[in-house]
Design a protein around this nucleic acid. Structure first.
Lengths: 348, 348
DNA sequence: TTTAGCACTCATAGTATCCGAGTGCTAACG
DNA sequence: CGTTAGCACTCGGATACTATGAGTGCTAAA
């Protein structure tokens, strides 16, 4: 028996997968002729299908039904067979328009982007913010605000300025804060956040004189920032789309999946894309998590500035419209990266 | 026929509703005796049930089945019949512990709170931030950051400090920004954001000399802030819980509802609680939105500081555990308000 | 190598039947 | 007169059986 993937076998497999993606029903030899227009008799196709099944690319739900792609089949499809859809001008414009988001904080922006992507693709979407392990401190500013509080503002070199309002037991004097600000800017700016040691903070305290009593607040804030920057935040959008696919008409399955996805920690562990721009497919059992074994995840990454990478992706049944999806996702991610890197007047 | 709500009728109705809430199955006269321990024969209870049905408190899915509470029945139940569960010490502590949230931004805090409430109640939760129509400007600060950008920081009297990074076509000089900052603080602090007129900004420009070229950036930022503060933000959490209730085993129903709820604008229009602390129930057809006609919404409000009110609530089938829910929700909302009003060192 | 023909498989839909929880009504009881 | 036992009746849901037809694998001829 011919166990090579002849061009004809590829054509059959491709036609079958495309049909199954569209109609979500096992595809028979006759359907292949009638609906996909393959120029062979159904008997010939049956031969091919038997061999494709033996090669592991197809499966049969039961003995007398049509064929269904196996995960390996999908894998071959996305790697070699599928034809990438180009985007129409209109689609490009829709995506571009969606990027005019007003939010200023990174995470709000990502959430909005995810919601839009979910609207666009009609799949459930997850998004991960970048893990920011190298934040550089650019500037400090401390000033009083209200009766007995003061504000610490820290400017970093990534997309955000962070601040905190502090209420110390002893009311801060404007002059003392000004002095402390000067010392902080003198001693700490230009440093990477991770490199701000206790030793350095002690030297700030020494230099700050009486304003030194406020140093612990600054140190505490920096510690919080370090922690906050260091972990990715995860978001999910468009959960209701999951219920639109027939494979999740089993309510228990749908529920388990959504429950799994709503755990941010699990999301963070989810498939991450390989390299910028390109799209990664993780198909069914290729997923590590038990809960995703019959689910596919398609991910792209977006870049902020130089080396910060966040991820945005789509979750759905293995029978996803990979071809259509991947081009949209890739374009979307590249646009998102551009937006966040400050194509607008936004961002340092 | 006795059309008055005798104490016995109330007892029957209450027992029936409690049973239905627990088991989600039409309740028969025999069940009332055996499971709820009513001290009458099933025949007597059948008499009562006929009358309760005629009064509109019960309904019968079909002629030979048990009874189910009608929306009017639930209404009576929450208004008069149900017995509020107290919270155990452990539950109180669990809620209190959940309030030690690290997030600094208001909306992130609300999201986290909503996620926790959903975990606690096992229902889908929605949350609305307060509508902040009276923001007072406390302080401005402008400074350069990086090569050709500068940062505008605005401190307000509500829970947040806002900032924006701006990249003007002409690099800003440190001195000019210092001067502009001084003018802004002189002319605008203490004002309510809404009262910052174009006229006022023009006078700032005049006073700022050469730094006046940067005033439009500040004005633009203030306009954005006004818009941002003025609208509530809406969040949804725990969507997967919806699928846990048998009334949403109809996937189409579940999907429609989740789709409706994932539209933030619709959420904003959702039932709002009446007064602080107390909990409001909107039962099935009492909802204005068509999509919520067989869904109940239970809402509480939380206060930030003096007069800002946000809402947090729970969405589920009309067969909700109102008694258990309301006490938990009320306590949760009051705790949330306390947290946000600055029980911690947080917030101006 | 391809295709027509054919017997075979089996999921699905449709139909018939049964079961029993629950009802409403009536008559007897305290 | 309110309460209860008894009973015929209803009807949704479970179970069993059958028919249908899409799809198969195999064989033999083109």
């Amino acid at each position: 028996m011919n166990m090579e993937l002849t061009p004809r076998k590829k054509a059959v497999l491709r036609a079958l997968i495309e049909d199954y993606i569209q109609y979500a029903e096992p595809v028979g030899s006759k359907t292949l002729v009638e609906r996909r227009g393959l120029e062979f008799s159904s008997a010939t196709l049956r031969h091919e299908m038997v061999e494709l099944e033996e090669m592991g690319f197809l499966a049969q739900p039961h003995i007398s039904s049509g064929r269904v792609p196996s995960p390996r089949g999908y894998r071959l499809f996305v790697d070699e067979l599928m034809e990438y859809h180009g985007l129409s001008e209109i689609e490009r414009e829709t995506i571009d328009a969606s990027m005019r988001l007003k939010a200023k904080e990174l995470d709000r922006l990502i959430v909005k982007a995810g919601e839009f992507l979910s609207l666009l693709t009609r799949y459930t979407v997850y998004a991960l913010t970048p893990r920011i392990d190298q934040v550089r401190l650019l500037r400090f500013d401390l000033f009083t605000a209200g009766d007995d509080t003061f504000v610490i503002v820290v400017v970093t070199d990534v997309h955000t300025v962070k601040n905190k309002v502090v209420r110390p037991p002893f009311p801060p004097a404007e002059g003392a804060l000004r002095r402390l600000t000067a010392v902080l800017n003198d001693r700490l700016t230009g440093l990477v956040l991770r490199d701000v040691t206790q030793e350095r903070m002690r030297s700030v305290t020494r230099q700050a004189g009486e304003a030194g009593v406020y140093v612990p607040y600054v140190a505490g804030f920096l510690a919080e920032l370090l922690e906050e920057f260091d972990e990715r935040e995860a978001f999910l959008a468009g959960q209701s789309h999951m219920l639109g696919h027939p494979e999740y008409h089993d309510i228990l399955k749908a529920r388990r999946l959504l429950e799994y996805l709503s755990d941010g920690r699990e999301l963070t562990r989810l498939a991450l894309a390989d390299s910028d721009g390109s799209v990664r497919f993780v198909i069914g059992p290729e997923n590590e998590a038990e809960e995703l074994r019959d689910t596919s995840v398609v991910t792209a990454s977006y870049r902020i500035g130089g080396n910060l990478r966040g991820f945005i992706g789509v979750v759905g049944p293995t029978r996803m419209d990979y071809a259509r999806l991947s081009s949209r996702l890739a374009y979307f991610a590249s646009r998102l990266g551009r937006l966040l890197s400050g194509g607008e007047e936004e961002a340092p």
